[in-house]
Design a binder for these strands. Sequence first.
DNA 1: CGACCTATTGATCGGACTCAAGGTTGGTGG
DNA 2: CCACCAACCTTGAGTCCGATCAATAGGTCG
Lengths: 349, 349
Amino acid sequence: MNILIIEDNKDVLDNTTELLELTGYKVSGAINGKEGVKVAKETLPDLIICDIMMPEMDGYDVLYYLSIDPKTSTIPFIFLTAKSDATDFRKGMELGADDYLTKPFEEIDLIKSVERRLSKSNRLKKAMNSFVSGGAEEEFDMENVDENHELFKNKKNKVFRPKNFVYLQYGSPIYLYYIKKGQVKTFKTNEDGKELITGLYKENEFFGYHSLLKDDEYSDSAIAVVETQVELIPKEEFFSLIKNRREVANGFIKMLSKEVVEKEEELLNLAYNSVKKRVADGLIKYFDKYSQDYIKGLQIPREDLANIAGTSTESVIRTLSEFKRDGLISAEGKTIYISNEKELRNYKY
Amino acid sequence: MNILIIEDNKDVLDNTTELLELTGYKVSGAINGKEGVKVAKETLPDLIICDIMMPEMDGYDVLYYLSIDPKTSTIPFIFLTAKSDATDFRKGMELGADDYLTKPFEEIDLIKSVERRLSKSNRLKKAMNSFVSGGAEEEFDMENVDENHELFKNKKNKVFRPKNFVYLQYGSPIYLYYIKKGQVKTFKTNEDGKELITGLYKENEFFGYHSLLKDDEYSDSAIAVVETQVELIPKEEFFSLIKNRREVANGFIKMLSKEVVEKEEELLNLAYNSVKKRVADGLIKYFDKYSQDYIKGLQIPREDLANIAGTSTESVIRTLSEFKRDGLISAEGKTIYISNEKELRNYKY
DNA sequence: CGACCTATTGATCGGACTCAAGGTTGGTGG
DNA sequence: CCACCAACCTTGAGTCCGATCAATAGGTCG
């Protein structure tokens, strides 16, 4: 695995290089943007880490020049910067950067970010794979997709800040969405303004396909939970993928059938189970979805949990208090830790 | 439209012939089973009406001999009989008869039955059409299916008496089911034994496809509501239809997406709406589904309505009493009549 | 006609929603 | 760095909807 680091500060460059070589990567360096672009085009590394603040050609320029060349446009790109300004962050993400590391960074953060991005080249293809196979065990066969071709050609990047809408109920779908980084939830609202969360999505997942597939206006709204970078795939590309590849179509049929059954299960749950049971289920659902990202604990707002369980915020809080008392969970500030996963998972009453 | 009547009683034959000719059909007659089969094979009528009790070759034999010849096996077949015994009824239905008229019959019943069956030759194809187009306005293009071929070749007939299970939760799906006549409901059960009805199906509809498509055990149970004649289509045939016909696959994707969205809507409903609203919605749902069959009123058991609305039987009854008081519905015995459809449909509280 | 099932009404009880009032936390700007 | 504000979390009190239990009436089937 070849990694290219573009960084004008010699100390930082050496340090980072050493760190990554210790971890077992082959690393090359470039001392400024121009050289960086040149090396990138010549050696086609598997990953590029690039500083933003550099004389002459800055990080944004580097990313831009690499993105217009098909050969380099798909190489994972991580920004490295002292700036922690949200505006800059968004600018980089909109250009198509894959991650953003703020100096000074922890070694572990760098390594983790690198590994995550490396394991994700051809992410879209892999994501679509697990997408249509319903996230199931069996591997869906999309290997005969030409490896040199991207799954989707015309995609745009867009960044949404927390609580920004990605799309609104009753709007017309134009895109299939793919989350490069961040978190999105979809929800429906009833006449009284009460919300029910219908979907939780994270990094490397697609969303917004139901309304697209049923060829109708959006039946729910989608909102970014955290700062989220999204790839917008024109619906025509999505449709042509489904229409031209039988295995994708079949995968969708299977996945959608599964979803129908899951929703029916939730209906049964919502119809007859107590709030306690529903909150327990909601916690587990959230836990299963995001536990990798928040090993430290669940960062879920009480209101969101209420809107997953289909109850009121106060009821959720009271239930959580009970769970604490019974030793099922513990909490520290807004963060929830699951202490007794097994019992919570089999919660009955 | 040619109709063949096979009936050994000359009076009945003449009477029926006259009746149908008056309605505008071309009618030929046969005075016994043997002749009936002969005429049927020669003239290939569009519909056959046949008495059961006949000397020499009885109605069952006629049906049997016609069903083993591919040329005549798909002709709609109506039994005419003085017997009203349920055993006989089921015997006829199992052999593949399409309807069953008991003598003495009302003229209107005969005409209605004939028209219904005639409008339904190639029923399966038409049913699959509206099935995959999600019952929507647009016609789905399945015209290039060879007209001389049945959609499915190997199908079996089976008759289920009221409250008999068609399939059981956790069983393994082998068939796609198609209702020739009757009514089926599917439901899930929770740990406390409470039921939630997940699907209502009637004549000319398919059911049991979710578990088939997601390739897993049944996630719900199916039960016959009334005496129901079902066609069992082996899953292999169903799969080959999906795999070989792109338009069918696409239709399924669209239909399933629609179902997901509908289930989500129900979730929102169940989560936040009052029992009254849910009962109103349940009534409307039932009404929309079966109003053609029961112009006279809805024959729904209170318990079923409760299991659609996700509430208890008593609550349903109390709500119905209120609706009666407010003039939204009226009732006569177990039958419910909808008096103010509009208000019921827009029920808010 | 008796057994059984379904529909209906009454009475009671409790879970969960609502409203209301602090308490915490985190972010922002002076 | 601290003060302030807004957003979120938490707890309390009161209320009501809807589930449950129980009893009766009406219908149906053998």
